[in-house]
């Protein structure tokens, strides 16, 4: 088993990055890998509630974040700096992610076997 960190660093819906990152996360978790999701910079916007991507012809993968516990991912981390930068807090999120500072995120990047950035 490998520990994998998957970083979301881009806004949702403008391209396929967020959906692909989530697909990979669920796939890896299904294969019983230890999966950590990390949301930084504009990537934190993936976790916002009340999104309606179907209005602009995009698949609503955001709803799937709510199922992360069933997939037994190891952790879901959201950057405090990035959240604050957009004037957001935890209550706006569709999944109760753990809020972490950059130092804590760096530690996690050191601990895992692989880091994949989307």
């Amino acid at each position: 088993m490998k520990a994998i960190a998957i970083i979301f660093r881009q806004s949702p819906h403008g391209n396929a990055a967020g959906r692909e990152a989530l697909d990979l996360a669920l796939m890896a978790a299904t294969y019983e890998q230890q999966v950590h999701l990390i949301f930084i910079d504009e990537g934190v916007l993936n976790l916002l509630g009340n999104q309606q991507p179907e209005l602009i012809g995009c698949k609503d993968y955001i709803a799937t974040f709510k199922a992360l516990d069933l997939y037994e991912v190891a952790s879901v981390i959201v950057s405090e700096v990035s959240l604050c930068g957009f004037g957001l807090d935890k209550t706006a999120l569709v999944y109760p992610a753990t809020v972490a500072d950059d130092g804590q995120i760096r530690q996690l990047l050191e601990q895992v076997d692989e880091v994949l950035v989307f």
């Binding site: 993968y61 799937t64 199922a67 069933l70 997939y71």
Partner: peptide, 18 residues
């Protein structure tokens, strides 16, 4: 119901658990 809530079809392992 799972699909309508989470917008994804559950894989077998997740189905069993849920």
């Amino acid at each position: 119901e799972f699909y309508l809530e989470y917008k994804t079809s559950p894989a077998i392992r997740v189905l069993v658990k849920a």
